[in-house]
Design a protein around this nucleic acid. Structure first.
Lengths: 320, 320
DNA sequence: GGTCGCGATCAGTTAAACTGATCGAATGAT
DNA sequence: ATCATTCGATCAGTTTAACTGATCGCGACC
């Protein structure tokens, strides 16, 4: 029978790709780790690791096993947590991840409310892009993350919190008078200023414009190419670029208060159906602290003063 | 850190509710098992087992932990299997469960085909009711089960195979001439002969008649009561009861060839939309042998000569 | 050709797990 | 009440597994 210890060592090895450092990470000596990896390979009868000079590689079977090992380890940690924490809501340390296009706008308003309402809670924060957050969540390095749904992973569970509409931000000079809504098909993707590759907001904005223009009869080929300007690292930068007349952008409503103090930028609503992203919480399905996450979600919605997402928000999202 | 061994011992204890026998089941002595259970409780800081005289009970935390432990153990077994069996389809032992209202009609036709096509395969068969099958499946005591969908358990995955329509079986004497389809609302639940409690077929038949009659304006109260005649243990018995004029029954089409050799019984189609159950395969989401199950499903559909279920059969089922 | 990094291997030690015997509480029959 | 029985806890001693520290051997790189 394999042991959790072996899986832990294997997981560390996969993460660090180095026997010595993995051993250190597990607080054992290198031979101890080597032996356990070896024993694991012997017991399941398949080579998992390719010991190549200068580099540790994984066989295909190895990658598969590592993936499963991480799930098992997370489930084991959750088992311990659920037993220890039963009955005490939102207490102890909660490792919370948020994507960069939400964090700066939501946290300043949520954290004080959270602190006040659940003083026993200690938040460990982490801000990165969706794919990193989900990876760390699956590995059990995070407890819950806040990002744009949907998340397609049966090991994870989501709770929609609210809809965050996109607004068109453009140089004030170019803005039409009045505040009549603008149609998404009026946005020319080639002058869209976007965040760098990897931000989900970038993909959502692109997808939205692409779909709109295809509906309007514009051939796909003219939109599928990535726009010329790529790679702002924050919405603040994007806003600056817009302010200086370099183009337009899709700005999430949640960011408007903070980002759009600049008079050189105007925002305009889109005509219905307004494009939006669905913001929600995501956690491991095996996580013992679902009650915590629900409470956390309530506090967030409350602190932001937004309309909570409809219960069927996720389903409608999937349908579209 | 807890160990898989501890979880295995705990799981055995939960199953057998007896330290001595659990120890025997795990091939260790009773003190060894006692010590590991104790150590597990110490490590997670919660009492799991109530050592009551004459009986071993579980605390609420204990039950929760046992449930999670079983999942983890199954995932660990699957991890080993996936590594060992990669690339060899339908070989080795496959533990296969089937519900009683399918097994006698499907297996005689499927098993020979399976044997011929995949001679390396050894099937361990098990026939019981849905809830037992699903329980054993979750615990890892079965690899795959065949039953009526849907199955609402996020740890399990399903593949629809085919639709099995229900036909009305009634005494030949009472049957109208010709073979015009009969409306489900014509069926009087009070004269329905059904399998004993626990068979999913029973519930489906009842639900179907109830819905039909409610649609037809018959008040619910007159159908919600369980019918007077309860408890045949096999469709063969039910058929005999119908043959002898005790009532009518809903007969799955798949069983008609075998069961209805009796001239005293007539079957009639229902008018569209015909009531049916969706038969499918179900396995643990973590199971490594999904490819096997797909192949198995193909062989079953093939051997029965039925129309394979539409890919969206499950979705439509959920919608209804 | 030396040396540096890295994982394998080995011998010896430490720690964990298990066994067999025994204990003690609860139960139920006499 | 008494006594046998059952069952889990406990204990001492043994076996087994895991780990350490030292060493080896092999590519890589200067």
């Amino acid at each position: 029978m394999i042991t959790l210890k072996q899986l832990r060592y294997l997981s560390a090895l996969a993460r660090l790709r180095h026997f010595g450092r993995a051993a250190q990470d597990c607080a054992v000596t290198q031979p101890a780790l080597s032996m356990q990896i070896r024993e694991l390979e012997r017991e399941i009868g398949v080579d998992l690791v390719e010991r190549r000079p200068g580099e540790v590689g994984f066989t295909e079977a190895g990658r598969e096993v590592v993936e499963r090992a991480d799930l098992i380890l997370a489930a084991a940690r959750d088992l311990v947590e659920v037993a220890r924490h039963r009955g005490r809501p939102l207490s102890g340390a909660l490792r919370f991840g948020v994507i960069p296009t939400i964090a700066p706008y939501v946290l300043p308003r949520v954290l004080p409310a959270l602190q006040q309402r659940y003083p026993e809670l200690t938040l460990d924060m982490r801000e990165t892009q969706t794919h990193v957050l989900l990876d760390e969540l699956s590995r059990g390095q995070l407890d819950v993350v806040m990002l744009a749904l949907p998340v397609d992973n049966p090991d994870l569970q989501a709770k929609p919190l609210f809809e965050d509409r996109f607004l068109l931000a453009l140089p004030a000079k170019r803005a039409p008078r009045g505040d009549a809504p603008v149609s998404p098909r009026d946005v020319d993707p080639s002058e869209l200023i976007l965040l760098e590759e990897g931000h989900c907001l970038r993909d959502q904005a692109l997808a939205f414009c692409a779909v709109s223009r295809r509906d309007a009869g514009v051939p796909m080929s003219s939109v599928s190419a990535t726009p010329a300007r790529l790679g702002a690292t924050s919405l603040a930068t994007v806003t600056q670029m817009v302010a200086n007349g370099y183009g337009v952008t899709l700005m999430p409503e949640i960011a408007v208060d903070v980002e759009l103090r600049d008079e050189r930028v105007r925002v305009m609503r889109f005509s219905a159906p307004e494009p939006a992203r669905l913001i929600g919480l995501v956690w491991r399905r095996t996580s013992p602290r679902v009650a915590d996450f629900m409470a956390l979600g309530d506090v967030i919605v409350d602190a932001l003063g937004v309309a909570p997402a409809a219960p069927d928000a996720l389903r409608r999202l999937a349908a579209s």
